[in-house]
Design a protein around this nucleic acid. Structure first.
Lengths: 346, 346
DNA sequence: CTGAAAGCGCTTACAG
DNA sequence: CTGAAAGCGCTTACAG
C-alpha cells in the first residue's frame, strides 16, 4: 500500500568508508581530490565508490563548506520560451558552464508578483546569485538579499537607483537610428507602434523615436502614435487602423518583435508591404526571407546574457567594486522594407 | 585584502528563536505552517523572522526531511536557445510551477559526453527527477540512478530498451503524411533532405518518407536522398545541388526545421520557390508569411513538454506502474508550398 | 502545546 | 598521512 519512495537509497560516504576499510574523512579527501592520500588508499576508496555507485551529495557538502557556494545561479526572464529570452539563457548557460555552475530559470510573464515569489524561491535554495530581467519596479527588498550575500545583476532594465550591476541595450539610441534611417529615405510621417508604456524599455524606444523626429524638425503626431500594444494581434489591428485611416503614415516604426510581426501581417493583409516602409526593433528569424526583407534594429541577446553572467560570476567571486552599467549597442540591418521610398502623397 | 565573502551572513532559525524567545523547534513549526502553535507565539516568531529578514534554507531542511525531495527537476535538451527546446522548456516550467518545483536546465549540443557529465551534475544536486532529450545511445548507467530513486523520463527519443517512460512525436507517421500530401498533389519525384542518420528521429522520418513513396508505388531514388545535413547551410547547399542537377526532383521533403529553412534559401536563390513544392517537418515562426506560405508537418513541443513533466512528477510522487510510451501526433498545415502542382517534365 | 537531544551527509578544525 | 569529534541549518523522534 505504500505510495512513493520515502527516502532515497543512495550510498553515503560512510558506506564507501566501511567497504574500503578507511575513515570517512579519507573518502572525503579522495572525492575532493586532495593529493595527500596514500595511493593505495585512493585506489581502494575509488573501487569501493564505483562498486556502490556512490555519488557525492553536493547539497550536504555545501551546508558545511566555508564558502557556502551552491554552484547554482538563478535566471529570471520574461519567458524561457521566447527567442530573445532563450538566446540570453543560452549565453548564460555557456558562461556558467565554464565555471561548473548550473542555471535555475523561471519565466516572469511581466508579473511583479510572480517575480517576487520566484526570487524568494531562488533565495531559499541559496543560489550564489541571480540574473534578473525585471518585471517589477520596486527592488528595495533586494537590498537585504544583496547584503546577505546574494549578488544580483539586472538585465535589460536599470534598477530604480543604481544599487546593482546592469546590462542594458542602447534602446534610445537604437530606436533613433532606426527612425533616422526612415527619415533619410525621405519619409516625413513615421508612425510609432509600441509596447506598454509601463515598461521602461518601451519608454526609451519611444524617446529615441521622438529624438530622431525632432532632430529632423518633424513633429510627433499623436494620431500616428500607438502605445500599449500587448500582443501580435493588438499590433496587427492598430496597424490596420493606421493604414486604412484617411491620413495614413508613409512609414512604420515598431518597437518590438511581436509588434513588428503584427504590423507585417497588417501590411500583407492590405497589400501595402511594398508601399509603406517598415523598420522594426529586434531581429527575428527569416526576416531576410520576406518580400521585401524586413529592415531591423537588432539587439544582441547572446552578448547581453554573456556580459551579465560574467558580471554576476565576478561578484560571486568577491568583486566589490561599485555597480556598473554595461550598455550593449544595436545594429541596423537594412533588408528592403526600411529602404522603400515614400509613397506619393494623395 | 579579503576577496570574496567567506560565508553568507543570513539569519538562521536559531537567531529567530533567540529573538522571539522560543525554542528553535517552535520556529520550525511556524515556518512550516504547523497549526498546533499558540497564536501568540506564531505572532512573535513571525515578527522576529520579518525583522531579521529570515528565509528558510531549503537545502538544509531537505537534508533531514524524510522524503528527501529537493523540489527541483533537471531538464536536458538539445539547446535551450532553439525554439523547439525553448517551447518544451516553457511547458515543463508551467507544470513544475504548479507543484512548487524549479527546473535546472542544460544544453547537450548532441554531445553524449556532455550529457553524461550534466546528468551526473544533476544527480549530485539530488534533483527529484530528470527529463532527458537524449544525445547519447547507451543508458545502462541510468538504471542505477533510477534504482537509487532518481526518476527519468525521455523526451523525443525512446531509450534503447524500454526502461523508462518516454514521450515522442509520431515521426514516422508524420513524415509519411507530409510526403503523401505531395504525392496526392501529383508529384512523382520527391527528394529527401535530412539530419544525421545517427539520430533516431531522423531515421524514423526517413522511414516515413519511404513508407509514403512505396505506398504510391514510387521508388526511393538514391540520388534524391541527402542524409547527414548538420546545419542550415549544409542543407542549403545540398538543395542547390539537387535543384541545379540535370534531373531535379519535382518536390522537396525536409526532415527538420533548419533544413527546411536552408532549402528555402536555396529555392529563393534559384527563383524556384513557386515552382518546386516543399513540405517541411517542424513548424516555424512566420512560415505563413512567406511567398508562398510554407506547408509543414508541425510538432507540438509544448504538448510534449507538458506530458513529459506530468509523467515525471507522477513518478516522483510514487507511481510505480510499468514504463509508458506516450506518442504525440503531428499536424499537417497546408500553406501553399506543399500544394504547388508538379512542374512540366522537360 | 513546547523544546532538548539526535541525526541528515558532508567538511572543518584538531589530534595523533 | 589518517581519523574521531564537532558542527553546517534544519527535521525527526521523544519527553514533558
Amino acid at each position: 500500500m505504500s505510495s512513493g519512495v520515502d527516502r532515497r537509497d543512495r550510498p553515503t560516504m560512510r558506506d564507501v568508508a566501511a567497504l574500503a576499510g578507511v575513515g570517512i574523512k579519507t573518502v572525503s579527501r579522495v572525492v575532493n581530490g586532495v593529493p595527500t592520500v596514500a595511493p593505495e588508499l585512493v585506489a581502494r576508496v575509488q573501487s569501493a565508490a564505483d562498486s556502490l555507485g556512490y555519488r557525492p551529495n553536493l547539497t550536504a557538502s555545501n551546508l558545511r563548506r566555508a564558502d557556502g557556494r551552491t554552484h547554482t545561479i538563478g535566471l529570471l526572464v520574461e519567458n524561457v520560451g521566447n527567442p530573445y529570452s532563450a538566446a540570453v539563457h543560452r549565453a548564460v548557460e555557456d558562461v556558467a558552464r565554464e565555471h561548473g555552475i548550473f542555471v535555475l530559470s523561471g519565466s516572469l510573464d511581466e508579473d511583479p508578483d510572480r517575480e517576487y515569489h520566484l526570487l524568494r524561491a531562488l533565495i531559499d535554495r541559496r543560489v550564489d546569485g541571480v540574473l534578473l530581467a525585471p518585471a517589477g519596479e520596486d527592488y528595495r527588498h533586494l537590498v537585504a538579499e544583496q547584503e546577505a550575500g546574494t549578488s544580483v545583476v539586472f538585465i535589460d532594465r536599470r534598477p530604480a537607483s543604481l544599487i546593482a550591476d546592469c546590462v542594458v541595450t542602447a534602446n534610445r539610441a537604437g530606436a533613433a537610428t532606426g527612425v533616422r534611417h526612415l527619415v533619410a529615405h525621405g519619409h516625413r510621417s513615421v508612425a510609432y507602434l509600441g509596447d506598454r508604456t509601463s515598461i521602461a524599455t518601451a519608454r526609451e524606444r519611444f524617446a529615441g523615436y521622438a529624438d530622431a523626429l525632432s532632430a529632423a524638425d518633424l513633429a510627433v503626431a499623436a494620431n500616428w502614435v500607438r502605445h500599449d500594444l500587448r500582443s501580435m494581434d493588438e499590433a496587427r489591428r492598430a496597424a490596420l487602423e493606421l493604414l486604412t485611416s484617411e491620413n495614413p503614415p508613409q512609414a512604420l516604426f515598431t518597437g518590438q518583435n511581436l509588434i513588428t510581426i503584427g504590423a507585417l501581417r497588417a501590411l500583407h493583409e492590405t497589400g501595402l508591404e511594398s508601399t509603406i516602409a517598415l523598420v522594426g526593433f529586434d531581429d527575428f528569424l527569416l526576416a531576410d526571407m520576406m518580400r521585401p526583407g524586413i529592415t531591423v534594429v537588432a539587439q544582441r541577446p547572446y552578448e547581453i546574457g554573456r556580459l551579465a553572467a560574467e558580471r554576476l560570476l565576478a561578484r560571486v567571486a568577491g568583486d566589490g567594486s561599485p555597480p556598473q552599467e554595461l550598455v550593449v549597442d544595436t545594429a541596423l540591418i537594412p533588408r528592403g522594407s526600411g529602404e522603400l521610398p515614400p509613397p506619393a502623397r494623395p
